[in-house]
Amino acid sequence: MKRSSRNLDPGPSSGKLKFSFFPGCSLKASGHENTLSLLKFCQSMDIDLVELEDWNCCGSSSAHSIDKRSAKYLPMRNLSLAPRGVPLLIACPSCLLRLKSSFLSIKADPALRRDYEDFFEKPFDDELEIIHFFEIFNRVDLKDHMEILAGTLKGIRVAPYYGCMLFMPPDLRYEKSHTGIIEKSLKSLGADIVSYGYANRCCGTYLSVAKPDIARKVVNEIIFKAMEAGAECLVTACSMCHLNLEIRCTLDNPIPVLHFSELLSMALGAEDHKKWFPRHIVDPVPLLKKRGLLA
């Protein structure tokens, strides 16, 4: 799926959007369907994504919990690999937090900058733009693509679920907030947005492994509240949240959980969903058929 910039680069004058893409471990493995549908979406929107060459794990919660050294250098190495002049696009909220806060601290701290430059033997790129997948919606006029698509999602009742990482981290308090992007874009495609109080509630992250009872409780709470508000499905912005919501839910007949990128790609007419939906634990196909989104 990786598109080569060498063959397809239309040059700077074309106005075509081009990003380096940092998938991260969750999207690369357990959330593979998220990556596939995201690449499909970008392809449909004529956006060029080039996977960051030889990227590594951002360190995630485990590094900053128990190992300061790897928590510091793992995100830095990814920054050092990013090509100049191309924005770095990240779809995982947790990876975004790690890479961006690393970038902001180096920018603000001359000693840390020296440390970075000594360690990676290259100058630090002050100008590197690190953006979340949602930022695409500020740069592309979806209307260009959506006018013909209005109503495509046919009133499917969606509970947006952002998770905690996109909203609250103090390290990113001066950065742009993307609140409302899921609501706005899916509504313009014809979905009904359900409002409930748990859109930024934490999914439990790694407690899903080490403390499954606690994770089960928060996951059930989130899905129950969405169902109570009348949602037919949840739409997630985070691949790890998606996994937790699926594997830790013990409610009877829970609603399916879709990746934001899956629903977007469906609206744009992507037909390779056969590769995505079998990877879901709660099968979204009956709902999508009922709503006429799948034949």
Partner: peptide
Amino acid sequence: ILNFHQEVLNTV
């Protein structure tokens, strides 16, 4: 929880 963090970092 500590065990989990250590195993994550082991694979990294």
